[in-house]
Design a protein around this nucleic acid. Structure first.
Lengths: 192, 192
DNA sequence: CGCGACGTTGATTTGCCTCAACGATTGTGG
DNA sequence: CCACAATCGTTGAGGCAAATCAACGTCGCG
């Protein structure tokens, strides 16, 4: 499967689109290659794009006191990268988005997105469903945060994203789990 | 403003609807009065409804080992009550929803909701936008969880929902913040 | 080679939990 | 209308989970 087809397959899970409709949908997007460590959004900027990942991996994170990073989520193939708050409201973002690998995404600007909704009303449904999925998934994580100690959350993460656990440095996983990297190291030791 | 008007005003924030369109939209919903402490969803059931609160207050919570409650969110006037995961997928819910006050909501069944989308495509947009708002708000809370100690989170909560802080018993606020009620009590003492 | 990114380990401290005991208030059935 | 239970909040003692700080080893890379 080519990278572009990944998008088509994914879209078709949510709405019926003919090939020509998909071609039209695609025309609103443009491809972008991003190098490892490149920032595609920095705190204070307005997020005027929405990206869909064809290849690679990103972290979406919050920077506390310019010292500590807290990772809101990792995004890999078939996920979205944007700060939805900033994208929707047009307010400056508090988040940062950075590539963890050389990556390839397709992007749409806010302006184009509005046009897309106007010209292809079907996409309202597509993005409603995708938002629902995202909402569900972050709710599950919130429950896990309220509920479970760090070792349980780590096991859950490994279980849920076995490939991510390989691709991403441990100290970043710690920043996602909400613990220090030292403590994650100690958890891993115990689990052996 | 009557309770019904609350719904109209809220909907109009997201999409343009004529009065007759709104009447049609309303016809998909039915009003329901719910008494304090009544459960409208229990763990294991399928959430086949979506409710919009006209009056009152609910907690949406997860029950750990049938002992400890973790509150995913509180919902008051102009919020929604449902388990979106169960509602969308049709799988049994892990969540519970209970009224904290005598309440009045309007409800729509899953079946009716599908019909609503079919007959009034504009509502796709309405619910897409509402989901976006919900997504943004839970993301903010997740950052706060990753980021802040309990006393900061408590102040943030008070600040953001000053009225809720009055309406809701402290031990429930503790369950929302992810701390024990004893510890919340100690935090409050310090803050005096 | 030398430096920066990454990971490990130990010592100490701190945030928060658990358990237990105790008022105050509310609710409820007799 | 009282008695009693249930709910709610407070406080203290002790313990555990996780943070912080510091030191050190490894690896990849300019």
């Amino acid at each position: 499967m080519t990278a572009q087809n990944l998008f088509y397959e994914n879209v078709k899970k949510y709405v019926d689109l003919s090939e020509s409709e998909f071609t039209k949908l695609s025309s609103f997007y443009h491809t972008k290659e991003i190098q490892r460590n490149e920032m595609i959004l920095s705190e204070g900027e307005i997020c005027d794009f929405e990206g869909y990942i064809l290849e690679g991996c990103f972290k979406i994170f919050y920077n506390e006191d310019n010292v500590k990073e807290h990772i809101l989520y990792f995004a890999v193939e078939d996920w979205w990268v944007l700060d939805i708050g900033s994208f929707v409201s047009g307010n400056p973002s508090k988040l940062n988005i950075q590539a963890l690998e050389d990556s390839k995404i397709i992007m749409i600007t806010k302006e184009q997105k509005e046009k897309l909704y106007d010209e292809m009303p079907k996409t309202e449904r597509l993005f409603r469903l995708m938002n629902q999925k995202a909402l569900e998934s972050i709710q599950l994580r919130m429950i896990s945060m309220l509920n479970k100690t760090a070792d349980k959350r780590y096991l859950e993460f490994k279980n849920k994203y076995p490939t991510l656990e390989q691709r991403i440095p441990q100290h970043q996983i710690a920043a996602y789990l909400g613990i220090s990297h030292e403590f994650l190291s100690k958890i891993r030791r115990k689990l052996l």
